[in-house]
Amino acid sequence: MPSLDDIDRRLLALLQTDASRTNQDLAAAAHVSPATCLRRVKRLVDEGYIERRVALLSAERLGPQLTAVVEVTLDRQGAEHLAAFQQRAVADDGVQQCYRTSAGPDFVLIVGVADMAAYNQLVERLFTQDANVRNVKSYFSVERAKFSTTISF
């Protein structure tokens, strides 16, 4: 896979802040021709640097949401047990992010649900019904001081 040059990096940085730009606007902001911009962005998509383009929704406008950071420790950490829990976690709509971790819990989940009742349902689905879940620690957000989807490179 070829390495990224300055133009690729500029395009990626610009797209991270606003992927809805027209090709003309993106080309102007990146200081390249529209044809070069179109070709470069297509290559970045084809090579997997750009996975997908999405809309970020306003949590404030859509109503209150309960956000929790959840640490999960399994009783048995064999590869098949870790894979089984991970598969169930990533399939659950309430789990927004799932990280396998080391030197601490086995998983850290970022959970977003409507309210405490919805959180309790998630707990029942993912933790209570799984005999391999040894320990769960949940930390509930009281304020989101920063949120970013930008990747530094």
Rank of each mutant, 00 (worst) to 15 (best):
F140I: 08
V113C: 07
L11M: 09
N135W: 07
L12P: 15
V142T: 06
Q97H: 04
R9P: 02
E47A: 11
T73I: 01
R134D: 12
E143C: 02
A19F: 08
A55C: 05
L82I: 15
G104W: 00
R125S: 11
R76V: 11
A28F: 04
A89V: 10
F153W: 07
I7S: 15
Q16C: 02
D25M: 08
R100L: 15
V90H: 01
T101C: 13
F85A: 15
D5H: 05
V111N: 04
E80C: 02
T22L: 01
L56Y: 14
A35C: 00
F147N: 12
G112V: 01
F127A: 12
L74G: 15
S152D: 09
N135G: 10
E124R: 15
F85Q: 14
L74K: 04
D5R: 07
V108D: 07
V95E: 14
V70P: 02
D106P: 02
A13Q: 06
V90F: 03
T128I: 10
E124V: 09
V111Q: 05
S148T: 14
V113M: 03
A131F: 10
R125A: 07
I110E: 08
E51Y: 11
F147H: 04
I50H: 13
I7H: 11
C37A: 12
L26Y: 03
A30Y: 01
L14S: 14
I50L: 05
N23P: 00
S152W: 05
F147D: 09
V45I: 12
R43I: 00
Y49D: 09
A79E: 15
L122D: 05
S58N: 11
G78Y: 11
E51I: 06
S3F: 03
E80I: 06
L12A: 13
I151V: 11
V108C: 08
G48F: 00
C98P: 08
G63Y: 02
V72R: 10
A84W: 04
S3L: 08
V72I: 07
L38Y: 04
V95P: 01
G78T: 10
E143G: 10
G94E: 00
V69R: 13
Q86C: 03
R53E: 09
R144M: 10
C98N: 13
T150W: 06
A59Q: 07
F153N: 08
S20V: 00
A83G: 12
R43S: 07
I110N: 08
A145P: 00
V133A: 05
R88H: 06
N120E: 13
T36D: 05
I50V: 13
E60I: 02
P2R: 13
Q96W: 05
S138W: 12
Q24E: 10
C98H: 06
R125I: 06
L12S: 12
A117G: 09
E51C: 04
G63R: 05
T150I: 09
V32T: 09
G112D: 00
T128F: 01
V72Q: 07
C37D: 07
L126N: 14
A114L: 12
R125Q: 12
F107A: 04
Q77V: 10
N132R: 14
K137F: 14
A55L: 13
R61V: 13
A68T: 02
Y119P: 09
L38W: 03
L44I: 02
D6A: 09
Y139M: 03
A29Y: 01
Y99T: 05
A27C: 03
V90M: 12
A35H: 02
